[in-house]
Design a protein around this nucleic acid. Structure first.
Lengths: 181, 181
DNA sequence: ACAAAAAGTTTAGTAATGGTATACTTCCTG
DNA sequence: CAGGAAGTATACCATTACTAAACTTTTTGT
């Protein structure tokens, strides 16, 4: 059970120094170093303290351990709670909560519009597989045609609308995952 | 972090004695006793060995720790991969993989039929909320009307079909969870 | 380019505890 | 009630989880 690398990544993700993590978890920075280099192993209670500081749970911490799927067939798609009649949002990688990115497939019927998404941290990437859509960022409008794509920071009000005559398909990737069900 | 009770429940669920568990995990029965009574605490490596023997993962073991949701609104439903045009299967308790039962809401359009499910261990319970359906177990047919319910062991080939004129809604509970997405 | 500080590593040492061996008790079952 | 299987308690030790502090490496500002 080598957990050093995972701990280090987690600490980095929280942008903490070994020393800060140590002090918040009531440990010494030397010990943190040993842990990250797998020179020793924490007691369960201590590990709990550490993951608490790092904003996770034991469950989530050990979740990396199970082999995650690599390939997802069409049949793995999970339809998210619809946010409209003529909009379909399909999670392409179910369980992406534990990952870094959340890719979904959006299908917009003609005239269909995705509800405005709540603002959050992160970034978004979209690729238009078919059709033509209009992207609204704050108040600016962009037209994105089949084959084109977009990328923006999620801290802006954004919405998407199908302005073509046929259905539109969008591959959408959000980081970090927010498309919970 | 008291984990004794959880370990004991797990061991019981596997119908092992402390001694058997001990030998399979290369420990002593006395130590298992201490663990179950929280008189001591295992190292992470040892705990891993134990949960391995008990057929779980560290993730799953610690999953009991996080507070699970109690109430699920309509909007929490997750549509499972459809197994037919006129069939809708909605998971009522997303993430039920970690639970004991997996309740789903099945909507069958007139004439709609659920694909035959693969045989598995466990039991199934169904309650007809509206409409009238026909349940097929192996080759025997049963008619189940609105308000009626059924219960059977999953080790038989089974399928359900809407034989009424209007849509049918079924509340279906499977144990253990098999409705993965 | 060079201090100087910040971040990380190493090492030696110890108090704590993870784990064993064994004796004891409790609970079944015929 | 005998005999055995399952579980508990205790004493003990070897391991190790964790600290303190010196050391090295990386980053930062001027």
């Amino acid at each position: 059970m080598k957990i050093g690398e995972r701990l280090k990544r987690l600490r980095m993700a929280n942008s903490l120094t070994q020393e800060e993590l140590a002090s918040r978890a009531d440990l010494t920075k030397g010990f943190i170093s040993q842990l990250e280099n797998d020179a020793t192993s924490p007691s369960i209670a201590t590990l709990k303290d550490i993951v608490d500081v790092l904003g996770t749970s034991m469950q989530e911490f050990f979740s990396e351990e199970v082999d995650q799927d690599i390939v997802f067939g069409k049949d793995a798609r999970v339809q998210a709670t619809d946010d409209g009649d003529n909009v379909k949002v399909e999670l392409l990688v179910p369980g992406a909560q534990n990952r870094e990115m959340d890719p979904v497939l959006v299908t917009l019927d003609p005239g269909g519009e995705m509800d405005e998404q709540p603002i959050h941290e992160g970034e978004e990437f979209g690729f238009v597989i078919s059709g033509k859509v209009q992207l609204r960022l704050d108040d600016k409008l962009y037209t994105v045609d089949k084959g084109e794509c977009f990328y923006f920071s999620s801290d802006r009000k954004h919405a998407v609308k199908n302005v073509g005559k046929s259905a539109a398909k969008l591959l959408w990737v959000v980081t970090p995952p927010t498309f919970y069900y």
